[in-house]
Design a protein around this nucleic acid. Sequence first.
DNA 1: CATTGACCTCG
DNA 2: GAGGTCAAT
Length: 409
Amino acid sequence: MNSIRTGEWQKLAVSLAELSLDTTLRCGQSFRWKKLNEDEWTCSLRGRVISLKQDPKQDPNHVLYKVTWPSNSPLTKLSSSGKGVKVEDDSTKDDTEALLRHYFNLEPNLTELYERWSMADPNFKKRAPKFTGVRILKQDAWEALVGFICSSNNNIARISQMVNNLCLSYGPLIGHVHDQPFHDFPTPESLAGPEVESQLRKLGFGYRAKYLARTAVIVSKEKPENWLESLSNTEPFDETEWKTLKPGGRPGYRKSHEELLALQGVGPKVADCVCLMGLGWGESVPVDTHVWQIAQRDYKFGKGKHKSLTKATYDAIGNHFRLLWGEEAGWAHSVLFAADLRTFAIRLTEKTEVQEELQIKAESEDGVIVQATTVVKKREAIREETIKEETTDDLNVVFSTTAKRTRRR
DNA sequence: CATTGACCTCG
DNA sequence: GAGGTCAAT
């Protein structure tokens, strides 16, 4: 493909503790990043294609990024001819680093936040160490809205596939990376046509087709220009103090949440996802089935008044976490959510292995004789446990066992 | 208010 | 059943 040019790899100064690409991009916040070439994350963002790499062993203090501009961009020349080019004016200035800092929401000091949450909450302290660098993204609000409308009764793999189909059909092509086409995310206007619902049904959206089509019309035609963006949090992040906030969150958050609820296919959970990941309201706590399980298992919900996940229980859980974790409760919630995802289950055992190795090494240095066979046996035992667990899970799916499998630990 | 089905596909 | 929502009871 000669329609585009690709630039060189550039450094973005951000440590592994502040941002883990693998965890942040796979935890179900965004549905558009593709992993190519084993370790390269790629996605189109604001008219360009961005690839990211992070090598924890080689350089834990940087993320590498590479930009691919469409051939009609004035920046194509700039990025293809390397570093020696003089930047003449704003139209030829590559703002990708600023874009990445904004998108990955890099201002809050995540390390400090983890410390605060650990101080306030023993359960967080226990689970977070294996899931450092989980950040809340500042995604485009419209994209977040569409993605999470698709998320109902759905899984991450299929949501990603649906969003991909949406971009292929309605988003302008930007270019190819590793022979993969990358399209921009479609605008609300482009999804407001009369044929959109039936088209989306053909693309496999199911009942969500109507929600998306209706929402696109409302956003592009019935609401004022920039309505969605106007719901964003504009307060600068303040890390100097752990603010005491009202249990229900700030007025701006409550208003945004309420406004979003008026849209088709947007209930409390989806509205909170958009508030948190698209509009910058850090106190927003989306309570889905996962979080509901966590709240029951670790925070004593599921009894008495809050026996089932009703609207009242939903609000109570959010309030509880806001009081416990403070103004960025949604960030902390996301860490525990990631720690509970099946996608990352294997990581828990891997880390255990490493810890055991270190422990044994330490014992050896103290003069205690340790036989190698002991280490090997322990590792194998852990592997078997993991496989057994996954097998059991598969069987449950196949035979549709009625009893819910109780979670380990 | 809380509870209950239906809603589209598919990994 | 899958990171829900809507409408009716």
